[in-house]
């Protein structure tokens, strides 16, 4: 579903990615670990089609995100660290707005059901988003992806700043979405959460994929040790 072959991204200020090769199959959750500036966000932006690789090839469901932006936008959903919604709209109105942009028409009841499914308490559905916590906004972000029936979910530090309960809910949600066939790539610093949620883990350092691990074969302590070793090396 997601394929990066020997991808390099060069900026004027330096190299963000060096020959990154990565493949993620449908229904898999892949976590990219790395410190700030390791190239995680660049990878996501390449997959979103907002950046063009300097060299190498990026494909998503067989399409080039940069060239086939319109087709890609139907397949991909993106959840950033801070899901920024329109504060003057309610949760339902935000979901309705983003759905309508994607050409999806759903009744108010159906929208509410999606929000509930994504963990947003029904009392909050008709509240203005200005009063939402970060976790609540993340849930609306996921609801947008869910309503869109996106095949691929790209998440940039999705659990950052969430309280443990919200973080746990998010984990459950993502696992559920993967079970339903979504392919998920998430960039994170959270070693514990990453091991718990993902199938495979990649460690990025200065734009290079230095290590790949299967989550089920590594304990939290081992993962932390490997990660720290690479970061300090």
């Amino acid at each position: 579903m997601i394929q990066l072959s020997n991808v390099t991204k060069q900026y004027k200020s330096g190299t963000a990615l060096k020959g990154l090769t990565l493949q993620i199959d449908q229904g898999q959750i892949y976590a990219l670990l790395g410190s700030n500036g390791a190239g995680k966000t660049t990878t996501i932006n390449l997959l979103l089609g907002f950046l063009n690789p300097t060299s190498g090839e990026v494909t998503l469901d067989g399409l080039s995100p940069f060239k086939d932006r319109k087709a890609i936008s139907k397949r991909v959903a993106y959840i950033p660290e801070n899901v920024s919604l329109y504060p003057y709209l309610t949760g339902v109105e935000n979901l309705d707005y983003f759905c309508s942009l994607a050409g999806i028409k759903k009744s108010k009841q159906a929208l509410k059901e999606i929000l509930t499914k994504c963990g947003l308490q029904s009392g909050a559905h008709t509240q203005k988003v200005a009063g939402y916590s970060k976790g609540m906004r993340q849930k609306v972000g996921i609801a947008i992806a869910y309503a869109k029936e996106a095949k691929v979910l790209l998440l940039d530090e999705p659990a950052s700043g969430l309280d443990p309960a919200a973080s746990n809910e998010l984990t459950m949600l993502l696992k559920q979405l993967a079970k339903e066939g979504a392919t998920i790539l998430m960039a994170s610093h959270d070693l514990f959460r990453v091991r718990e949620i993902s199938d495979r883990i990649g460690i990025l350092k200065k734009g290079e994929l230095v290590r790949e691990l299967k989550a089920e074969t590594v304990s939290a302590n081992e993962l932390e040790k490997v990660y720290l070793d690479y970061m300090q090396a």
Partner: peptide
């Protein structure tokens, strides 16, 4: 600045 632009574009706008 808020990142909503990416959201809007990814929704097809």
């Amino acid at each position: 600045e808020s990142g909503r632009l990416k959201f809007l574009l990814l929704q097809g706008a």
